[in-house]
Amino acid sequence: MPNATDVPSGGPRVLVGATGSVAVTALPSYLDALRARLGGTYTVLMTHTAASFIPPDTVRLGAERVVHGEAPADWPTDKPSRLVADHDILVVLPATANILSAAATGAAPNRIATVILSSTFPVVFFPHMGGPMWNKPAVQRNVAQLRADGHHVPEPEWHESVDLSGLTTRHPALPAPEKAAEIVAELLEKTRTA
């Protein structure tokens, strides 16, 4: 995997919003796939819960910059308006029910939600959650509202998983990293030609 200093300039400036789901542990694979497909530069904005699943220092291996926490010294470069100005697209991966709700209702409980509210660029949400949660009317209303507001929420892929008790469940999950990169590339292309 290339270090940030080895990445050529040019290409899209991608902001990745990493939320608190076990699926965030796969983030390095998604960063690799996005970089292979799009080139560009990457900033990862992590919620405090995301940072409890995967250390920011691990994420930093695949991104030019990682933003997490709320250190006052970082506010001039990390405030939402600055993050929006410095990027071309926001990829929310994984998108939990919590972030879908916040974005759909215009709430700003964390920096990712505030960036979504401040965004002047495309925002794409890749949902990951339990099947019963995804099927709740409230979640589906939030997804419909996000789409109506011009955001992009691809239909999730359904996977089977087995928990520690041996129970098998089906749930909406992230697409393969290469598929996610393809979706982001198509969205960027539409934005350029619009």
Rank of each mutant, 00 (worst) to 15 (best):
N98H: 15
P56K: 04
G17V: 03
V66T: 13
S81T: 14
A71H: 13
A104G: 12
A4V: 08
A4Y: 07
H48N: 14
T43S: 04
V124R: 01
A71M: 12
G166W: 12
G69R: 01
D57Y: 11
P109Y: 01
L90S: 02
V67C: 08
E182L: 08
N110V: 00
L15M: 11
V184G: 04
R192M: 05
P55D: 15
A108Y: 02
P80I: 05
R35T: 13
K179Q: 14
D86F: 07
P127K: 05
T58N: 07
P127C: 02
H152L: 09
M133V: 15
P55F: 13
R141S: 12
V184L: 02
E157V: 10
L38W: 09
P127T: 03
T77F: 09
A97I: 03
T169M: 09
A103V: 08
I99W: 01
H87Q: 08
T77V: 05
V124L: 12
A23P: 11
V67S: 04
I54Q: 10
A173N: 12
S101K: 02
R147H: 00
V153I: 10
A73R: 14
P109G: 06
A63G: 05
L146K: 01
G166I: 10
H152T: 15
I116M: 01
H68R: 00
T114V: 02
F125L: 05
R141C: 02
R13T: 01
P122F: 08
T58H: 11
T96D: 07
V44S: 05
T5D: 15
V123Y: 02
L90I: 11
P172H: 03
R13Y: 04
V124K: 02
S81R: 10
S118P: 03
T41M: 03
T168Q: 00
G62M: 10
E178D: 15
E189M: 08
G11L: 00
Q140M: 09
V184P: 06
T25K: 11
A50N: 06
R170L: 07
L100G: 08
Y30S: 03
M133N: 13
A71Q: 11
